[in-house]
Write a protein that binds this DNA or RNA. Sequence first.
DNA 1: AGGTGATATGCACCTGTATGCATATCGATA
DNA 2: TATCGATATGCATACAGGTGCATATCACCT
Lengths: 125, 125
Amino acid sequence: MGRVKPSKFEIFLNYKLWLSSVTGEGIIEEDRYELLQLIKERGSLKAAADEMKISYRKAWGDLKKAEELLGYELLVRQRGGKDGGQSQLTDKAIKLLAAYHELHVKMDDAVENAYEEFKKFTSIK
Amino acid sequence: MGRVKPSKFEIFLNYKLWLSSVTGEGIIEEDRYELLQLIKERGSLKAAADEMKISYRKAWGDLKKAEELLGYELLVRQRGGKDGGQSQLTDKAIKLLAAYHELHVKMDDAVENAYEEFKKFTSIK
DNA sequence: AGGTGATATGCACCTGTATGCATATCGATA
DNA sequence: TATCGATATGCATACAGGTGCATATCACCT
């Protein structure tokens, strides 16, 4: 979520950006982006969920739904083995993350600009 | 809520913009903007709520909370009278709406641009 | 072969938010 | 001054999404 605080005013300007299916169901938004990012770093869904302090149950369910909506896999999962298992991002997932990030950066800029406009409003009062 | 559909791809790009208090509590977002807009046109909170198909109870509660967070009134209410009563927007409310709208227009542009970036992603596939 | 720890998934519960319902207040007009 | 319809507000219920818990599966390592 983006956030800007116009000075001298107790109003904050926020925005949320997300990718969705035709039906409007969310695929990737702020939290899922972070979750995927953490999985990429930790190589584990559980570790990522723990870090984000959300239940593994939810993290898993969210990703499953996202994959279902996208029609392709976001994770390469491995069960069993030395450490019990692990998960990595697929190439598509990595590209999707990059695209989302790109979008977010652009939106941040836009909000920053819009903020100027808002300051005018606050000065009119 | 803004929405753009990158062609040839079943993914939609959405965003939501809202003003909030320091604590993050929402003051004005899409729905409340529309509600206020309708009140402006109809001169009635009830009529606006009906039109939006939300309960009067909720509409009323939402506005009350918004006013509370802003620290000033959004509506000039009148109870009783010929038609039972009516509501109009205060000057501040009108300015706030205009400011919000301005922000939204800017964001729409930004999304439109970001959309180009996203198309690149979809072509990589 | 058994232990271990992450992935996989159903289900019951919990909690915050919306909806509905009930009721009070108010004031111009008939 | 009685009526009517919108504003005002409490409260109980309905509902959705998240959390926790339980349980199964899997495969490397000792």
